Simulated scan of single mutants.
Amino acid sequence: MKPIEAIMRTAPVIPVLVIDDVAHAVPVARALVAGGLRVLEVTLRTPAALDAITAMKSVEGAIVGAGTVTNPDELKAAIDAGAEFIVSPGLTDRLGQAAVDAGIPFLPGTACAADIMRGLDLGLTHFKFFPASTSGGLPALKALAAPFYQARFCPTGGISAATAPEWLSFDRVLCVGGSWVVPKGAPDEAEIERLAREASALAKA
């Protein structure tokens, strides 16, 4: 099993996290891990993101990665901050090659056959399907996956607790990404842990 596949199979849901205040990082990570969601994707959408990655790595059991990585400079910054895996919204040759050269587990965003073929050229077989709900949903992913027997997916974008089970029922989907597990605002650890427990109990195909 490839390292990125092992990460994707850790839990059925990867929380997609937007951390505005680094002080929230450890409480959020602690609650998610306690609820059974150990793989945490911190998006590089805020100035606090890199420090949040570093802080979350102090939580025992957490597997912390960086999301919204769009170029080699952000890739390096995320790795330097301690990211254990990388997620991108799309795939370019420069970013893909940089991730392969770095030897870090990498989940590039794809939404069409050309994206997947670009990834396969780089030796990548595991992809984020993004944005999932507005790119044709599950029927589109099934059609897209059909020609690529070796590809496995993590749909992300517009997925909720209600729709996640349908996505997970497709055997080519190893997990889904979602932001619903961590409500906006100051973290309520008990509530986040409750939502995480519900998410971690979702059946994988």
Rank of each mutant, 00 (worst) to 15 (best):
R94W: 02
R38V: 03
R30C: 03
I192D: 00
L168E: 03
G67P: 10
A162V: 07
E166N: 12
F130I: 10
A151R: 12
A23H: 14
G185I: 04
Y149S: 08
V42N: 11
T125P: 10
A196H: 01
P89S: 14
P105I: 10
A23M: 12
I19Y: 04
A113P: 06
D51V: 04
S58M: 12
L91P: 00
L40G: 10
P89Q: 14
I4V: 14
P12I: 02
R194T: 03
T125R: 15
E189D: 11
V182E: 05
H126I: 05
F130K: 09
V33P: 08
A77Y: 03
I116S: 00
S133K: 15
P27F: 05
D73N: 08
C154A: 14
E198P: 00
V39D: 07
R118W: 04
A146C: 13
E193S: 04
P131T: 13
R45W: 12
G61I: 12
V181S: 05
F170Y: 14
D80G: 01
L107Y: 13
H24Q: 14
G158D: 05
P3F: 02
L144D: 07
V33S: 11
P155S: 10
R45G: 05
Y149L: 15
D73C: 01
P89G: 12
G119S: 02
T54K: 11
Q150D: 08
G61P: 09
D73S: 08
E60C: 06
L44Y: 07
Q150I: 14
G137R: 08
E189S: 06
A55H: 08
A164S: 02
T125Y: 15
V182K: 06
L107S: 08
S169M: 00
L50I: 09
H24G: 07
G157A: 11
V26I: 13
